[in-house]
Nucleic acid binder design. Structure first.
Lengths: 344, 344
DNA sequence: CTGTTAGCGCCTTCAT
DNA sequence: ATGAAGGCGCTAACAG
């Protein structure tokens, strides 16, 4: 691999000059510039990135860590992140946190060690405290997605999870459902908690008693959605609607319902979360909540780049979800029945 | 950010000693080792990765470029790649090729510039010639997924696309289907060509005439699957079975069929490709072909690591697909009719 | 066991 | 407009 020295020798100039033409710094006579280019060409010269970054103390790249690579959600996220980073002329370099808080932290460290100019962290598992400690311990700025850090609000890009879940469930209620089962996403994560809380507060607002037998604690997978719906059915929980806290589990659940001879939505209404690409094409189309991930990640990258360039940033308002109504919900037994007295 | 010099000063030793304890090279007295650790601790020292890599000429990481981040397929791939790399104590660093050949090439270059010890390339778009040129131009070894490079067979980890498609279509035929429509994945890619070719040769083997009106050229998306199936229907193509060259398009197609009042499989049998996570949970379960991606990427990473360590590698046999039979296919009009004379 | 001395490949004053 | 020299932070002989 040819080095800068090789080029300089071949072009009959000094390393400094080569460096100048390479970076467009300083003045270089047109003729010598030509020679240098020629020499580079002939040698197939490529600047050594590490050496350059070391000298510059910047790698012209921004790092992204996601908790996992799995699922359509992060794929979409990465896709968009990659494009957006590129529009700023920087390189995106991504790592995953293997779905554990320790790995997430390591991933950030690793990116920091590589001198990324800024880091975007999408964590599902780290505690707020751990995050704060981490971002205070490393040199480069970090912006955090999917968290509302009270001590660093301006570094946060997040989504009103609870409110969106609330809307979804309230919609179900407005359609005449009162017996609404729920399958959660991992409940030890902020997201899991928030969505469940949204469910609870919607019930509460409408005077519907909380029934622990109607909620099942899931992971995020289709299989678990299937299993838990099966449980619900076997335990003879009564429900006219099911709120699955993500579309994947909704799909699993729909299989269980079908196998039990229950039709969607005639017998059971189904509501998902995420608006997965497939939601629209299922039969019936799955009603769900759309998350503006593209928007969020784009915004996060923009913030990160500003921070990397020492530009001022302003703290952003939270993003909000939007219900996407398709065919998986129909009116329930209490429809039109505007009395909402408590049914104790 | 504390440097090695800072540590050495504080510990009252030389940089070399610090380097020794850091890397566990050479002999260091236990007591001084302790001091050094203490100094590092107090200073919150973290070695500068770039400097280390520059001096070492190795970054202890392997690079992976995928053509796009989108879709479950690459998510699963990345997931597994990440885990496997880690078991070898190396870091995985991934980039995408924005679904264009130029970008794919750039991505590899970028990884090479960062001194990855080896590179794994999953390309959908680069030509064989371009790939060969690229891997010959960079210093680090590269292993190529999803391609059968005649000039570098030992660097290839690929899948018998055509054979798998052939099997799928032959299965359809064995079930008594003769009018089989097909929706392809991007036809300018080797994968697209191979799967279509599998379809064609299965027909041919069984003396079924090739009917261009029954094949539609798709991308990879659900939407396009829907649209093309709609076209098929509108053009009154006659078919009792539909072979969609990936599960996503199969899903889109299923929607179109449903809307046309056609039932799967009673009216139309449907076969997919990829065995997407959702395939199992759809109603009816989608028959499809399973690709051993986990296996393939694991193998590819292993090969890459061997190459990085200058270990010998052996050229691998191609991976093969496996039909996953679920409920989306039933017997067709020609079932039991074992005569396969040409129907001219 | 530990310190000294050269680099790794590039950038950047400071002279000329 | 160009060259010389020192430094980025770390590693690797080579002496003691």
């Amino acid at each position: 691999m040819a080095t800068m020295l090789d080029v300089s020798l071949r072009a009959g100039v000094s390393k400094a000059t080569v460096s100048r033409v390479l970076n467009g710094t300083g003045q270089v006579k047109e003729s010598t510039r030509k020679q240098v280019y020629k020499a580079m060409e002939e040698l197939g010269y490529r600047p050594n990135f590490l050496a350059r970054s070391l000298a510059n103390r910047t790698s012209n790249s921004i790092g992204l860590v996601v908790s996992t690579f799995d699922g359509f959600y992060f794929g979409r996220l990465l896709q968009q992140a990659s494009r957006q980073t590129e529009t700023h002329g920087k390189q995106l370099i991504v790592t995953d946190g293997h779905d554990t808080p320790e790995r997430e932290e390591q991933a950030v460290q690793m990116l920091a060690d590589r001198q990324c100019d800024a880091i975007v962290l999408y964590t599902r598992f780290m505690s707020e405290k751990a995050i704060m400690k981490l971002i205070n311990s490393i040199d480069m700025p970090v912006v955090v997605i999917n968290r509302d850090l009270s001590q660093a609000r301006d570094r946060c890009v997040f989504f009103e999870q609870q409110d969106a879940a609330f809307q979804a469930v309230e919609y179900l209620i407005s359609q005449g459902h009162r017996d609404i089962a729920c399958i959660t996403v991992p409940i030890h994560t902020p997201t899991g908690k928030a969505r469940l809380q949204g469910y609870r507060s919607a019930l509460e607002k409408h005077g519907i008693a909380w029934d622990p037998d109607k909620v099942k604690y899931g992971d995020s997978g289709m299989t678990r959605g299937y299993e838990l719906c099966l449980q619900l059915l076997e335990e003879k929980a009564t429900f006219s609607a099911l709120f699955a806290c993500n579309d994947d589990m909704a799909l699993g659940a729909s299989k269980a319902l079908h196998q039990a001879g229950l039709r969607i939505p005639q017998d059971i209404s189904l509501f998902g979360f995420d608006d997965a690409p497939s939601a629209k094409w299922l039969e019936p189309g799955l009603s769900t909540v759309y998350l503006p991930i593209d928007n969020m990640i784009t915004t996060a990258i923009d913030q990160a780049i500003k921070l990397a360039n020492d530009l001022p940033i302003e703290t952003l308002p939270p993003f909000t979800g939007k219900l996407v109504l398709r065919e998986s919900v129909t009116t329930g037994p209490f429809y039109q029945n505007s009395s909402s007295a408590s049914s104790s």
